[in-house]
Write a protein that binds this DNA or RNA. Sequence first.
DNA 1: GTCCGACGCTGCTGTAGGTAAGCGCATCCT
DNA 2: AGGATGCGCTTACCTACAGCAGCGTCGGAC
Lengths: 254, 254
Amino acid sequence: MVRPDAKRLCAMTIVNSPFARKLAAFVTLSDSDLTVLSDLYRRRRVFPAGRDLMHQGQTSHPVYILADGWACSYKLLPGGTRQIVDFQIPGDFLGLRSVLFRTADHNIEPITRVEASEVMAHDLLDAFARTPRLATAVLWAASRDEAMVVEHLVGLGRRNAVERTAHFLLEMGARLKLVGIGSKAGFACPLSQYLLADALGLSAVHINRVLRELREDGLLTFQHGQVVFDDLAGLVKLADFDAAYLDHDGPLLR
Amino acid sequence: MVRPDAKRLCAMTIVNSPFARKLAAFVTLSDSDLTVLSDLYRRRRVFPAGRDLMHQGQTSHPVYILADGWACSYKLLPGGTRQIVDFQIPGDFLGLRSVLFRTADHNIEPITRVEASEVMAHDLLDAFARTPRLATAVLWAASRDEAMVVEHLVGLGRRNAVERTAHFLLEMGARLKLVGIGSKAGFACPLSQYLLADALGLSAVHINRVLRELREDGLLTFQHGQVVFDDLAGLVKLADFDAAYLDHDGPLLR
DNA sequence: GTCCGACGCTGCTGTAGGTAAGCGCATCCT
DNA sequence: AGGATGCGCTTACCTACAGCAGCGTCGGAC
């Protein structure tokens, strides 16, 4: 049996993890929630940048919680091109959706060196059974992820390159702020223009044009791995970005 | 208490509903699963074509199971344009995803006259608790829906107009075949070229050209509300469509 | 009847964004 | 030092698609 103060200490260390910070944005987590959470963190693993850690068609892979670094999930097309569906940042799940299917339907590639905790599906369900609030928070986070995919889809279908790029970078800013990396001013961004292009359905050359345009219009500067929002209000208006997303500080449900 | 043979009769009538047919494609449903299912069907409602039955920003709306007709979920953009995220056909949920959020993040519009069963979130969770297999099947169906949204996103990002249109119509064909409407040969399709355009991120005029092109190449005919696959193999190849999707007849998990 | 609105179809013109190619500047290797 | 290699940046040219305008057909309202 663990002594209460040791438990507390454990909860203290976990509370600043990106995953906990993200969930805490949806519901207020109790100490017991946090200790259950910390159990999920045990099997920490490290992956180098560039080598896929999940392939489409691969059967029965584990689920990870990203602790550090960036990854992306993408699909390959026969022409050799690819479409990046979403980027994962600290606090996000890797491969949660495809755990229900026996086979993954997309690839996941670490963009930087990545640290992630491997979670057994069984342990996760077990944790849900013990702490319903945690289950609610995770489901909520999953719904938010899906809503972001939908927003991405809308952008690809009906927004032009500039709006789309602005919207994307605003959204990344909001997500990073939520887990304590980055702020309203900007964020450190390890994405190359090629990655941006594959995510936004554009060519790398055109991404370059778009970034220059945004820079020259005094809206946003993306240089040397750093995104700076030069005119946040202007960007939000241009991209039709839901600003509530960027702003909320406390949990939505107490 | 219902007599066993009455129960059986009830299960017999429900088994041919689109919803049950769809779930049965994922897991084999027992008689008791089917009776639980039939309880969900009680509050049947009818909606006329064209008038939205859910608005983005609307709070605390119910969930429906579509029994007859077509609907679409879409998002409006400030320019007055819209992007259709997905079409719903018999057997599909309406508004399942946004039930976790307090407010819906998209609109749902009936394309034809629509019959749908209103389901209380509580009843649904109750049904899940009683029949885990049903819960599995529903989760599976939800995952499939999300996978389709992802595939739609990939199409918008990296497929040209012809491939995208072909892929879309193949997918609708596969979905309709699953619930017993339509076949490998084709299906009845109430979508106007304007709706197609809003879903595929194109203009209605260009959809028209694309459909003509597909027709002239002997691949597919879409005329008078009827889609006919003239050259299924050619279409599958052109669109890079996952044919396994179209083929499976029995449940994936027994 | 004839008016009117949906919807489908086509031709013309403009443009957003793709493709190809090349340069500069880092970093890494040998 | 010299050559790879990767990434950012730019220019010139080309195409897939949008926008607009117009015309035909069907079906419903009056």
